[in-house]
Design a protein around this nucleic acid. Structure first.
Lengths: 239, 239
DNA sequence: AAGTGGTCTAGACCACATT
DNA sequence: ATGTGGTCTAGACCACTTC
C-alpha cells in the first residue's frame, strides 16, 4: 500500500465517521509525518487528495480544516467524481441495452475531428438505448475507430463496451472530456425514451481517451430529464 | 515565478502552438530537469498539471505523450475547469441583474443542512435574473449566511456578489460542489426567462466554500436550455 | 517569535515498458 | 538491459498566520 494513500484514507475515514467534525483542525504536517513515519512531501501529497475531494481546505500559516459539510453530504461526496459506464454505476439494478444500429461507416468530418483521425477512416457507429430495470433512460450514439477497437461484436455492444475494452483488449481508459447541454427531445428520441414530444433531455457529449493518449470514443448521450444528475467538485484557479 | 508553473507553461505553450503534435513524446523527466535545472519532483509536478488539464498522458516505463486532440479543441480545453460567476465568464458581454427578491429570512431546514448552520439562523434570500446583452439567461435563487456576509447591499446584489465577497470582505472563495439536473420550467421561470411554458431548463445546484472551509453560498440556478453548456475533464480513478 | 503549509533539492529504490 | 515514470526521504528555505 502506498503510504500517501494510507494516510489520506486514515483521515478521510476519521472525517466521514465524524471523529473530525466541521471546522476542526487536522494535525499539522509535521505531526502527521511523525505519526506515520513519513516525510513532509508524502504527507502533503496525502492531504492534497482530500483537498481535491473537497472535504478539507488548507490555509498556509494556519493549518488544515474540515469543511462545513454535514456528515450525510460528506459520504455522498466521497463517492462522487469517478467516471464509469452506466453498468458500473448501477450495480443493484438490471442494466440492459437495446441496440438500434451497429455498423461500420466512413468517419464523417465532425467525428474525425473529435477523434483526431483521418476523415473517412472506418469507425463503428452504434446507437443503443440503455434501460435500467426495464425503463429506457438514455439513448447513446457512439463512434469508435475500428483501428483501435478491432472486432467489436454485437454481444459486447449489448452488454458493456467498457468491459470489452478493458478486459478483452486490455486497453486502459484514462480520461474523458464531457460537455453537458440541454434541449428538447426530437421525435425519435421521445419515442425511444418513452417521453412526450419536446420533453427536456440532457445531452452529454463525450470524448474518451486511453492512457496512451488516443481518443477511442466519441459519443452523444441523450438522457431522460428525470433520470439524470451530474455532480462535480470545482476548484478555483487563483492564478 | 514558481518553477513548476514555468515548466508546465513552457510545454503547454509548445503543445497549443503545435510544436508538439498529437502522440508526440515529450522529453523524459530527467531531460526536462536538466534543461530547467530542476529536480525530478518538480518536473513531475509540472507535467502532472498538464495531465490534470487533459492535454497529455503519462505511462510509466514509456514516457509522456500529447493526447489526440486537434489544436482547436486543445485551446478550448486549456480554458476549461475553472469556476467563475456569470460576470467573469462573459467579459465581452453586458451582464446585468434584475433583482426580484432580496430579504433576510430564517434558514429553512434544507438550506441550513447544505450550509451546515443552525436551522433558523438568519440568511439572505436572493432571487435575481441575470441578463447577458439584455437577454435573460439564468434565474438564480441564492442563500447566504448573514454571519459570514454581513451588510450585503442591494447594489452588490445587482452587480456582482462575488466581487463584493472577494474585494470588499476579502473572503477567499476556494471550491464549489455542483449538481446539474434537467427539468421543465415552471410558470414563474418561463415568464422570467422569456420561455414557453414547459420548455427545458438546466438546474445547477451549488454549494460554495471559502478558503477556511465554511459554506458561504447555497444556490439554485435555472438556465435557459439554449444558453447553457458545461464542460469538464474527468479522470478515471484506478484504485 | 513560533508554527503552519508551499516549494525545491539530490538523491534513493521501485514498477513497468520497450528493445 | 536500459530507460521511463512513481514513490519516498531528510533536509532546506520561503510565505504566511497567529500570538
Amino acid at each position: 500500500m502506498k503510504k500517501y494513500v494510507e494516510i489520506s484514507n486514515y483521515f478521510r475515514n476519521k472525517i466521514v465517521e465524524g471523529k473530525y467534525k466541521a471546522n476542526d483542525k487536522l494535525p499539522s504536517e509535521s505531526e502527521v509525518g511523525a505519526k506515520f513515519d513519513a516525510s513532509k512531501m508524502t504527507v502533503k501529497k496525502a492531504i492534497d487528495i482530500l483537498v481535491d475531494e473537497g472535504i478539507v481546505s488548507k490555509r498556509r500559516g494556519a493549518g488544515t480544516f474540515v469543511k462545513s459539510i454535514n456528515p450525510i453530504e460528506m459520504e455522498q461526496m466521497v463517492m462522487a467524481n469517478q467516471f464509469r459506464g452506466t453498468t458500473a454505476l448501477n450495480p443493484n439494478h438490471d442494466v440492459t441495452s437495446t441496440v438500434h444500429l451497429f455498423e461500420t461507416v466512413k468517419s464523417p468530418e465532425n467525428v474525425a475531428s473529435k477523434l483526431n483521425i483521418a476523415q473517412n477512416a472506418p469507425v463503428y457507429k452504434i446507437e443503443r438505448v440503455r434501460n435500467i430495470d426495464g425503463k429506457p433512460v438514455v439513448m447513446e450514439t457512439t463512434y469508435m475507430p475500428v483501428a483501435i477497437v478491432p472486432s467489436l461484436s454485437l454481444g459486447d455492444v449489448e452488454s458493456s463496451i467498457y468491459d470489452y475494452l478493458e478486459h478483452e483488449l486490455k486497453l486502459a481508459i484514462s480520461t474523458a472530456r464531457r460537455i453537458i447541454t440541454v434541449r428538447k427531445a426530437t421525435t425519435l428520441e421521445s419515442e425511444r425514451l418513452s417521453l412526450e414530444p419536446h420533453d427536456p433531455v440532457a445531452v452529454v457529449e463525450q470524448v474518451g481517451f486511453l492512457n496512451n493518449g488516443s481518443a477511442f470514443e466519441y459519443s452523444f448521450s441523450v438522457h431522460r430529464y428525470d433520470e439524470y444528475a451530474f455532480e462535480i467538485i470545482l476548484h478555483r484557479k487563483v492564478t
